[in-house]
Design a protein around this nucleic acid. Structure first.
Lengths: 339, 339
DNA sequence: GTTAGCACTCTCTCGTGTTGAGTGCTAAAA
DNA sequence: TTTTAGCACTCAACACGAGAGAGTGCTAAC
């Protein structure tokens, strides 16, 4: 592995590059960090680091910039975690916990905070439907052919739909169906709904059953798109790496493709804790000039969603990681408390 | 007013500038449009049009570009409406009307379509809460201290909230309260809710009443933000006027300020039909390099919302106006049909 | 192993022409 | 009186070249 001095040099270069976005030369390092050696020595180290793939050189008479491999080593072994001041932590917690927010609003607020803290785009994947547990099903007869269906799911989700039926139903009938449905569905998850169950429902409840099944299936497919969003996109335009508009457009377009974001955060949801995906490590080519830092959040002990940040590979990893972690923890606390 | 030839020249210049985004010279006009006069004559006309404020000259040896006043005259008196092909109209109607979409999804879909048709940012202001009429209020007791409140409002809105009460309520009690509330609220609008009514509710229903009032008030303030959104922001980056990133950032930031958008579309909602706001006519300085084309949409005969497009002042007004109008009509049809 | 010195490379900036599009003006033609 | 051809003039945009400056790699001495 890298010896102590190489690590120091690499870290100094990455710290400096993160700060200035300019290629870093040997003199700068010698001047700013007191390594006790001359620029020439540092040059030798830098040449080695380039040889082994941790650094790159835009052109022969420029300084070095970190490669993806360099950043990877940095986040795994070199960086020192950023400590938010007591003040900042309190402010964040206050903004999220104090206000009387609905869960959806809280997630939006978290996104706003995260994007503000990191000057990057924040991504939030709201609790995914298929892990939700049916808690209560309620049919209310508003008119003879107009029925309001309310699904209460755990955690913290309520879905409604107004449906129109062909034949008329009496309030008593509806109330019966409501009870029977409740018995059938209570306690199972969206994901556990099977074809057999759908058929049973259609068999048992006729027209209403069919509409209901459609509703549920549709809900599964449709609402996925709505449960992910990106906030603070304008931030990336202020980053020097996106001075070239073409690149920015590519990112913006990617951000509007919900399915892509969904997959990206979806995979992150499988492992817990803070995940970092750097540049080319990302499967999606549009994102390969960016890094993504994500963290899962919880209701009680269940992972229900993911939130994170998208920024240039030259992002302030220590700060971003801390911010993502802090916000995820606070959101978990909030959601669990209100459960 | 302007004589016939001046109008022809002005129109030719604006058409050309909309297409190419380049200042238009007298030769170009003479060549492309057969006005039967020489460039020199056109030059004289152009000088007059500049004098009277319809045109501007970026610098002395460049062609002319339209001023805001020029665009205003163009949209009011010169442009010929764009006709979408039968095919296009059918496709749009199909995408919106055929699919089994919830109203919210339909509005999102409309936004996507609009942004695609116009290569601009589309804005959608969803039905504003305070005009909604209470249709049904439903309280369901999920646990002794956990009550699900469902408000069904006309048109096409359902709101839910899970509330926790300090003391326990029996299902019968809840059912009573539910009935009494329904009697009280049915048929009135959010806007008609008065302080007296709030006090009555708190008096009649104690703790639940208070929570309910909080809920309604909070709902009014909170959900405003959620009922407006912008789609297709990446489109503006492809416009040559935003080659300069600074300008683009200003627009992006404005687009993230929901309140600003809300006010902007809110004023447009007061008049019916297609509204056009050009450049400096806009009250909000961040938007003064843009034009906004909006149209109200309906449920039955009631204006319930506004949708539109934001783009550079050099937008293709004939096409944008037609697109906004078409989509607004189709959305109205859709919402009215499903009412 | 470290470092000073030096030749070398390459980007960036600045000034200088040069080109070309487009104008306004004048005087002649219609 | 209106239109037009002709012409001088202006100015952005582009290309070119010189020079500065930052930074490197190599070599030889410490």
């Amino acid at each position: 592995m890298l010896d102590e001095r190489k690590r120091l040099v690499l870290r100094a270069i990455i710290d400096s590059y993160i700060e200035t976005a300019e290629p870093v030369g040997s003199r700068t390092i010698a001047r700013k960090h007191d390594l006790g050696v001359s620029p020439a020595t540092i040059r030798n180290e830098m040449a080695d680091l380039e040889e082994t793939g941790y650094l790159e050189q835009p052109h022969v008479s420029a300084g070095r910039i970190p490669s993806d491999k360099g950043y990877r080593f940095y986040v795994d072994a070199l960086m020192e975690p950023h400590r938010f001041s007591q003040n900042e932590v309190e402010r964040i917690e206050k903004e999220l916990l104090d206000a009387q927010l609905t869960p959806e609003r809280a997630l939006h607020e978290a996104a706003r905070l995260l994007s503000m803290l990191t000057d990057s785009v924040s991504l939030v994947l709201a609790p995914s439907t298929d892990q939700l547990v049916f808690k209560h099903v309620q049919l209310v007869c508003l008119e003879p052919t107009g029925i309001l269906v309310t699904l209460v799911l755990h955690p913290m989700t309520v879905k409604n739909r107004l449906i129109r039926t062909k034949r008329e139903y009496s309030p008593e009938e509806i109330s019966e169906i409501s009870k029977a449905l409740n018995k059938k569905l209570k306690g199972i998850t969206y994901r556990q709904l099977s074809v057999t169950m759908f058929n049973e429902i259609i068999g048992d409840f006729g027209e209403i059953g069919r509409v209901l099944v459609e509703l549920v299936l549709q809900g599964l497919a449709e609402e996925k798109e709505e449960q992910i969003y990106a906030t603070g996109a304008s931030n990336i335009l202020t980053q020097p790496e996106f001075r070239d508009v073409q690149r920015a457009v590519a990112i913006f377009e990617a951000l509007e493709q919900k399915e892509l974001l969904l997959k990206m955060l979806g995979t992150a949801a499988k492992s817990s804790g803070v995940q970092i995906v750097i540049g080319q490590e990302n499967t999606y080519s549009a994102m390969q000039s960016c890094s993504v830092v994500t963290c899962t959040y919880y209701v009680g002990n269940d992972v229900v969603g993911t939130l994170g940040v998208l920024g240039p590979t030259r992002m302030d990893y220590p700060k971003v990681v801390s911010a993502v972690n802090l916000v995820a923890q606070t959101v978990s606390l909030l959601l669990t408390r209100d459960k």
